[in-house]
Simulated assay, not measured.
Amino acid sequence: MQYDANGALIQTEIPGLKLINRGKVRDVYDLGDALLFVATDRLSAFDVVMPNGVPRKGEVLTQISLFWFDLMRDIPNHLISADVASRPELTAYVKDLQGRSMIVRKAKVLPVECIVRGYLVGSGWKDYQKTGMVSGLKLRAGYQQASKLDEPLFTPSTKAEIGDHDEAISFEQVGGIIGADKAAALRELSLKIYSTARDYAEKRGIIVADTKFEFGEIDGRIILVDEVLTPDSSRFWPADQYQVGTSPVSLDKQYVRDYLETLDWNKTAPGPELPANVVKKTSDKYLEAYRMLTGKSL
């Protein structure tokens, strides 16, 4: 296992297990009858993985996903267990893996990012300013930056290969990729999960502005896969700091992005080393997101 000077887990190494994918954050291993998802403390910004990580970030991502899977247990998902000690081949690595890992079912992942927007911000806001539309959907006039939308929008995108960027596509294009029935099922599930999470989070003082989901299939049944409703896959705003007409403060890595924007850096690899104070502040934001959502501290 590779840790940085701040104690952040940067990379996992598990001899004897096949590494299927080393993504921006997750290392995925083949367990034969299942997969092992390990959320490291790596952090990416502007599609570049930073050289140092954010301590406990991977733990927060995993524990928040587990929280939502439990809260919405009526939605089929890929989780088998979060107890790595239950697998003999992982016994030697429990100290490194426990708390940041999930043992999950193998699924055929559908090639669509299922994005739901409840508020008009980011690329959606930019599109609206230019065209009055978001992902080809015509919106009424009069919205401001960070306005709550009259109804949440399903705005899917392609799933890009590493190094490429996702591209927004229409609902009809989703149907062309995976079939009309599956497209309708993804839209219905995505809006249902978002609305459930939004209503819950509001009671905890968090606005879920937007989020993205991934789905897979097992024996023709659509299930929720990967992480869900975390600060990496969603925009969380503290409700007491929310103000229409501004870009609200986020409980995520926006603090890192804002810092990087002050540098003379061309947003290509390698990324710059993050200062200790930026790392600490970002770690605190992730832990605060967990505390506010669950009412517990990690």
Rank of each mutant, 00 (worst) to 15 (best):
R235K: 02
P248L: 00
S234I: 15
G179H: 14
P231L: 07
E214M: 05
R187G: 03
G176W: 03
K203Q: 15
A180E: 15
D166S: 06
I206R: 02
K267E: 01
L263D: 13
R204P: 01
G220I: 14
K212G: 09
E261G: 02
L260P: 12
L260T: 11
A185G: 03
I218E: 10
T196N: 12
E188T: 12
V174S: 00
D164N: 13
W265P: 10
E172P: 00
F171G: 12
A239V: 12
A201V: 01
A160H: 08
D199I: 02
K192W: 03
D240L: 00
F171R: 14
I218M: 09
I218K: 08
T268K: 13
Y259E: 08
I223D: 08
I218C: 06
V228D: 12
A185F: 04
E217V: 00
V174L: 03
I223K: 05
I223G: 07
T246S: 13
V208G: 04
G176Y: 01
T230M: 14
D252Q: 05
V244N: 13
H165Y: 09
R187A: 06
L260A: 11
G175H: 14
G179K: 15
L229G: 03
G175N: 09
V256H: 01
V244C: 10
Q254L: 10
F171V: 12
N266L: 10
D226R: 06
S190H: 05
I223P: 02
D258C: 00
K267G: 03
F236G: 03
D226V: 04
D181L: 07
A180C: 11
T211R: 09
Y259V: 10
R198Q: 15
Y259C: 09
V256W: 05
V225M: 02
P238I: 06
A184G: 11
G175A: 07
G175E: 11
A183M: 15
T230Y: 14
A168P: 07
E202Y: 07
